[in-house]
Simulated assay, not measured.
Amino acid sequence: MFIQRANGEDILEAIRHFPVTAVIGPRQCGKSTLAKHLMEDYPSGTLYLDLERPSDLEKLRDAEWFLSSQKDKLICIDEIQRKPELFPLIRSLVDEWNKPGCFVVLGSASRDLLMQSSESLAGRIVYKQLTPFLWSELPRDISIEKYFERGGFPRSILATSDKISFAWLNSFIATFLERDMLQWVNFTPATMRRLWQMLAHVNGQTVNYSSLGNSLGVSNQTVKNYIDLLKSTYMVDMIAPYISNMGKRLVKAPKVYISDSGIVSALLGIRTFTDFSGHPAFGAVWETIVLANLRGTFPEVEIYFYRTAGGAEIDFVVQINHQIIAIECKASYSPTLSKGNYIAIKDIHPEHTFVVTPSSESWPMSKGIDVVSLSGLIEKLSLITSI
């Protein structure tokens, strides 16, 4: 069963207008499935190449000859980061063919990394990001509790049981560490696994490179390099502080989040929502879910957090169409704001504040502050972006 993705039409529109469309995002998030679905009815015919398949790699032994012979097709190359030397050839071919819809390239390295390899494609390539499933994309029979424990990766959230989901998540982590990461230099799988598990325990907190380095027995720079690597492969997300000019002492270290709640649960050894609900990480995992949906729905919007040395804080601050929006995440059906939240709201002066909860209902809390569901938050922000 194919599940429609929110930006599927946007990606198809890019294919129709650009010579090269890059679809980027973490491994196993559905890029290949979506690309094959979009290519099913493509009028000129298609060719799909997976660079992790030996037979497809063999076809590219003489890449110029082979790809030149496929001129009239839409060519999809999966896991393009494994063969970055193809980019100059792709540039030459699209310039020769002079038409849109020449190539779709799929990659699980970040846009920044791919851009370093594809500089020669400037003006010829457009980047579109795909994430694990957003809450709005999932079938309605999937509960928010299941989304908590399993995350959004298709093979996890759609698994037939919690046991299979948990096994897949652990297999994904092992494969990522023991195979996918081997293409990067100066990398030790055992150290990365320990760091990743430590980050799961401090999920949603400001990063302390010194503390992490001391615990791992490595330098602060090594920790930073490893976190940058996790970020560049979409396994963690970093949120910068919102800096205002009010003269208060602000927390200036970034916050770090594991990018998917299912990965958090596997790293912490949590198998069920019941175990999750009593865990100290519960509130931060709700922040992870909200952040993942913000990133996936509004990829161009900058997201910050606000925290002062005196304890005033707001989870996320976003600027949309020149409006400052404050977002506080509360993993409760009966949310209340703390004194620190109210001080932060007064400091920031947002046009509106949303308190997002796992409930399916929304209601006004006070003037300028609304309690909203995750779906309600996305709907309200979508209205603001359309203004």
Rank of each mutant, 00 (worst) to 15 (best):
Tyr304Asn: 14
Leu113Tyr: 09
Phe298Val: 06
Ser117Ala: 12
Gly8Ala: 12
Leu229Gln: 10
Ser362Ile: 09
Asp180His: 11
Val251Lys: 10
Thr21Asn: 09
Leu60His: 07
Val105Pro: 03
Ala326Cys: 11
Arg16Gln: 14
Arg27Asp: 07
Pro154His: 00
Gln221Tyr: 13
Val207Thr: 10
Phe187Val: 15
Tyr226Leu: 13
Ile387Cys: 07
Arg193Ser: 07
Ile325Met: 09
Leu199Ser: 05
Gly311Cys: 06
Ala281Leu: 07
Leu34Met: 15
Pro280Ala: 09
Met235Ile: 13
Cys329Ala: 15
Arg27Ala: 11
Lys128His: 13
Ile348Trp: 03
Glu178Asp: 14
His17Thr: 08
Leu138Gln: 01
Asp228Gln: 14
Ile227Met: 04
Leu34Val: 02
Ser156Pro: 00
Met115Asn: 08
Ala312Met: 13
Tyr147Gln: 00
Pro139Ala: 01
Met235Arg: 14
Cys102Asp: 01
Ile324Ala: 02
Ser373Lys: 06
Pro299Lys: 10
Pro154Glu: 00
Ser120Met: 13
Ser265Asp: 00
Ala174His: 12
Leu381Lys: 06
Glu96Met: 13
Lys367Asn: 08
Ser386Asp: 14
Gly296Ser: 07
Pro100Gln: 04
Pro254Met: 08
Pro335Cys: 09
His352Arg: 12
Gln81Pro: 05
Pro154Leu: 00
Gly101Arg: 08
Leu130Ser: 00
Gln205Val: 04
Ile343His: 14
Asp141Cys: 05
Glu79Gln: 11
Tyr304Lys: 13
